[in-house]
């Protein structure tokens, strides 16, 4: 199974990584690079119990952003991909806004939406929404006319076209978009949490850095990596359940 293979690959990677890290910290013998055991201790330590609180805050922010990005981006992308005229009207606007780095809006969002969760969630959502929208739209555009004829000749309505043809056709590519979006989302999250807040892993890492508590800082970094990894594996599993046809019928 693919998920298990990925799991194993990741474990090997982590072991190798840990070994290299150990060597380096031994050799450099500096507190900036604490030994993995110390980090692990900090991670599991009573003192680091607070990490989990921040993991939860960050995880929630990412999940909400992904959810909102999907709920807005997928239907709009499907609709644009299916309606040539509206697509032609909106395409220039999307072309112009897509390449703008969304993180530059953080100050504005902090002013308008306050210092709470909302501004940070909106920033992440903005960053991934366009990725999801553009991927979905492009995939929907490429649906062969024969597939539409096929469902119409079976008596399908426009809604049936979306439900039975367009959506399942596009779904595997939405997963691809999401895989890319998770990388973006975690990066933007880190940025969004390093200003004017006292919660989230971004804050936790920057705060530890400021206090030169490197064990605590690395505990934060490990937690953030684990968050990304968990989301990634979650996606793989979800795709396996939702797109079973992608994993069958092919010699592998």
């Amino acid at each position: 199974m693919r998920v298990r293979r990925v799991n194993r690959a990741v474990l090997n990677l982590r072991q190798a990584h840990r070994a290299v890290w150990h060597l380096f910290s031994w050799w450099l013998n500096t507190p900036t690079l604490p030994r993995p055991l110390a980090v692990l201790q900090a991670f599991l330590d009573r003192r680091a119990e607070e990490v989990w609180g921040h993991v939860w805050v960050s995880g929630r922010r990412i999940l909400i952003s992904l959810g909102v990005g999907l709920v807005l981006g997928v239907p709009l992308g499907l609709y644009l991909g299916r309606n040539r005229r509206l697509d032609a009207i909106t395409a220039p606007f999307i072309h112009l806004t897509y390449p703008i780095p969304k993180i530059v809006f953080l100050p504005l969002l902090l002013i308008f939406l306050g210092l709470g969760d909302a501004s940070r969630v909106v920033l992440i959502t903005l960053a991934i929404f366009f990725q999801i929208l553009v991927t979905t739209r492009d995939a929907a555009r490429s649906l062969p006319q024969a597939a539409i004829y096929s469902i119409q000749s079976l008596g399908g309505t426009e809604w049936d076209v979306y439900r039975h043809v367009l959506f399942p056709y596009v779904l595997p590519r939405i997963f691809t978009a999401l895989r890319i979006s998770i990388g973006t989302a975690v990066a933007v999250l880190f940025f969004a949490e390093s200003f004017a807040t006292n919660s989230g892993l971004g804050y936790f890492i920057m705060d530890s850095w400021g206090r030169t508590d490197y064990e605590r800082m690395f505990a934060g970094i490990v937690a953030m990596s684990l968050l990304g990894l968990t989301l990634y594996l979650g996606l793989e599993t979800l795709e396996y359940w939702l797109c079973p046809w992608e994993f069958r019928g092919r010699a592998r």
Binding site: A146, A147, Y149, S150, I151, S153, L154, G155, G156, T157, D160, H164, V165, P168, Y169, L171, C243, W245
Partner: peptide
């Protein structure tokens, strides 16, 4: 009216059963 297209027009994301049942479902 039933139409069978040149390349069968089956949906790869549906099993044989789901393909066959589709018209009735709709």
């Amino acid at each position: 009216i039933a139409l069978i297209l040149q390349n069968y027009g089956l949906f790869p994301w549906k099993t044989v059963w789901q393909n066959v049942v589709l018209g009735l479902q709709m």
